[in-house]
Computed example of a mutant assay.
Amino acid sequence: MIVEKVIANIKDLDPAELEKRHKEKVYLESDHLMKRIQRVETDHGRELGIRLKDPKDLMAGDILFMDEENMIIIDVMSDDLIVISPRDMQEMGTIAHQLGNRHLPAQFEMSDMLVQYDYLVEELLREMDIPFKREERKVKQAFRHIGHSHD
């Protein structure tokens, strides 16, 4: 089976629609969410080809296939993350500036900043006495680098 578009995301479906279908999952590493063409396998051993026509990243919960009885859903494997919890806006601005200078992609959940684990970032946070913890966590979307050059 070749998948060329995402049907919907499970968060947008009526819970009754979700419950009545058998679910297979495709587990992807977060950086594979950006790939428009890839070969994957469901947790039930079914092989799929993904060839997305739209230039859109996959997200956790995206539905690749759905009929009256079955659905195939994207799930994301856990990443090794640094979860930064600044105490105030001053700390948030300071660390955001430092990480921005290193061109590190970040995501935000509530008042936490998430970055992929890097021992240099861990050292920086310790030096700056900014609260953080290292943990395995699933992210909903890929960590995307924003194109930029210093001209």
Rank of each mutant, 00 (worst) to 15 (best):
85 S>G: 07
16 A>P: 02
24 E>K: 13
52 L>A: 13
53 K>R: 14
86 P>Y: 04
110 M>F: 01
34 M>C: 10
75 D>V: 08
66 M>D: 11
149 S>E: 13
129 D>E: 15
58 L>D: 09
80 D>N: 12
138 K>N: 08
134 R>F: 00
65 F>G: 07
87 R>W: 01
6 V>K: 15
116 Q>S: 14
2 I>V: 10
37 I>F: 10
97 H>E: 14
90 Q>V: 08
35 K>A: 13
40 V>P: 03
112 D>I: 01
144 R>N: 06
89 M>C: 02
31 D>K: 10
56 K>V: 10
50 I>F: 05
134 R>T: 03
132 F>V: 01
124 L>A: 08
127 E>D: 13
118 D>S: 09
72 I>K: 14
112 D>V: 01
110 M>D: 15
82 I>T: 01
76 V>M: 00
142 A>N: 15
84 I>W: 05
57 D>M: 05
102 R>G: 02
129 D>A: 07
28 L>M: 04
4 E>G: 02
84 I>N: 04
48 L>C: 06
120 L>Y: 01
118 D>R: 12
84 I>F: 03
106 A>H: 04
74 I>Y: 02
119 Y>L: 11
1 M>S: 14
142 A>V: 12
62 D>T: 08
115 V>L: 11
46 R>A: 03
70 N>V: 04
9 N>Y: 02
150 H>N: 09
95 I>C: 04
123 E>A: 13
122 E>M: 06
16 A>V: 09
137 R>F: 03
73 I>T: 15
148 H>I: 09
87 R>V: 04
86 P>V: 05
86 P>S: 09
27 Y>E: 13
97 H>C: 07
99 L>Y: 00
139 V>I: 10
103 H>K: 15
24 E>A: 07
149 S>Q: 12
69 E>A: 06
53 K>A: 11
144 R>P: 06
81 L>T: 06
124 L>K: 04
92 M>K: 15
6 V>Q: 14
97 H>K: 12
144 R>H: 06
25 K>W: 06
111 S>W: 00
123 E>R: 13
139 V>S: 01
121 V>K: 12
79 D>E: 14
105 P>M: 05
19 E>N: 10
53 K>M: 10
45 G>S: 02
112 D>R: 08
58 L>Y: 09
100 G>H: 08
88 D>W: 04
123 E>T: 06
108 F>H: 01
88 D>I: 03
88 D>R: 03
86 P>E: 03
4 E>A: 06
75 D>P: 00
78 S>M: 01
136 E>M: 11
87 R>I: 03
61 G>N: 13
60 A>G: 12
119 Y>W: 11
130 I>W: 11
95 I>K: 00
141 Q>S: 11
16 A>Y: 05
70 N>E: 15
86 P>D: 07
34 M>Q: 15
23 K>E: 15
38 Q>V: 00
17 E>A: 13
